[in-house]
Design a protein around this nucleic acid. Structure first.
Lengths: 222, 222
DNA sequence: AAAAAAGTTATCGATTCGTTCTCATTTGTA
DNA sequence: TACAAATGAGAACGAATCGATAACTTTTTT
């Protein structure tokens, strides 16, 4: 996968990154490889980036980051650099993500208890987060299919007891049934709309409904 | 990934956050780095934010938060930092997520160039990853709406040139048009099906189509 | 409401740094 | 051998970094 020079350079960058936390400049890399010109370094970096070993921000000074290291590495060298068994890029600690709890499944008719035990955790991109507390639910059934929410999707919910008209919410009906539906207020009444013609809209008095949170994100795995 | 100065400042912020729980003001940082002006600090902070090491709230006093630290840090230093400026849970260096490049938008008719520039990055849950290289695309248009893929969704693509029958793929048609469609083989012919009755299935000879990758995940932000 | 503190923006100049191009050379391989 | 790919050198260019001043605006405190 890598040529000698590419490998050599990658190792040097890795070392410098480990030791100093600062990536080397092109000139420093040039020195390290005993070159007299940095154009070669530029080509090597481009090659390393193409092959997915390195990440860089164009035109930024010392903005290099190692994404993965070759599998052929001696284990002794590897230990400093977080080994990865497959070709999956090493999860760098570049994570702009946040772990949140998955609280079970939800569908029309899910009993309240199902929302209480955390089954596991999932990391979600920080871009999906709003303020406050979040949790996740696995969507069960096809009642929101016309809103692009499919069976098996993971819904990211911002916990809270308010929601704007037309938002998709997790609502607790009469204290015992949690459901994911679009919420509409009509005076003192609240309508919970499914996004599937096969389900009918249910209408309640305000006090029958408790909003648990609003849908802010969705994650699907194929 | 970082410049000397950026690294130095990040370390100082981390220390202060760890010791006092309050982020330093620009003036304090200026002093710490022996500068006579805080404009430099502002630039450094901006750079750190751009590189994903720090988060801040504009115009808020001492509203800095460390998102991650470079890998060089001894674990002992890493652990105790406990910033408290934001209500968003602190991202952990859990290795539960992986940053991947967003390569632009895709729709029927996206020219090939649109797939070449990285617009930004997004961290995706490691659960969505398969083996090999991945990238992300912003979906444009409603041609896959019946597959639960809406305008504005982010599609996670596993790069590769093969796909099973019925999978949703990024396909390059006649070398110039990238599109996200369901792929079906019928003998020597390949059909690209939209998931929207308003669009018709297009049929090509095998050699007209190049598969770029298959859809393995989806992220939506409401 | 006024004062103080804190963050933002603009500009200048000296450096450092990354990018691009061309041409020559070496290396690997069909 | 011949061809392609990788490498080395050099230079020129433009962009980014950094320190320093100063004049803002927005928050926070008094």
């Amino acid at each position: 996968m890598l040529t000698k020079k590419q490998y050599e350079l990658l190792m040097f960058i890795n070392e410098r990154l480990k030791e100093t936390g600062v990536s080397p400049s092109f000139d420093e890399m040039k020195e390290a490889l005993n070159l007299k010109s940095k154009s070669g370094i530029h080509r090597l970096i481009t090659a390393l980036e193409e092959r997915g070993f390195v990440k860089r921000m164009a035109h930024r000074a010392r903005a290099l980051d190692i994404v993965k290291l070759p599998e052929t590495m001696a284990p002794s060298l590897k230990k400093t650099a977080r080994p990865m068994t497959s070709r999956v890029p090493r999860p760098s600690n570049d994570d702009r993500s946040v772990p949140i709890a998955v609280m079970g499944r939800i569908a029309a008719g899910t009993p309240i208890e199902a929302l209480q035990d955390e089954t596991h955790h999932i990391s979600i991109p920080i871009e999906l987060m709003r303020s406050g507390e979040h949790f996740a639910l696995e969507v069960h059934g096809d009642s929101m299919i016309d809103a692009g929410i499919l069976d098996g999707d993971t819904a990211i919910i911002q916990r809270g007891d308010t929601a704007d008209n037309g938002e998709i919410v997790v609502a607790l009906v009469e204290g015992h049934e949690a459901t994911l539906k679009r919420l509409r207020r009509k005076g003192e009444m609240i309508a919970l709309e499914a996004a599937n013609p096969a389900y009918e809209t249910r209408i309640f008095r305000s006090e029958q409904i408790r909003v648990q949170g609003r849908l802010v994100g969705l994650i699907r795995k194929y």
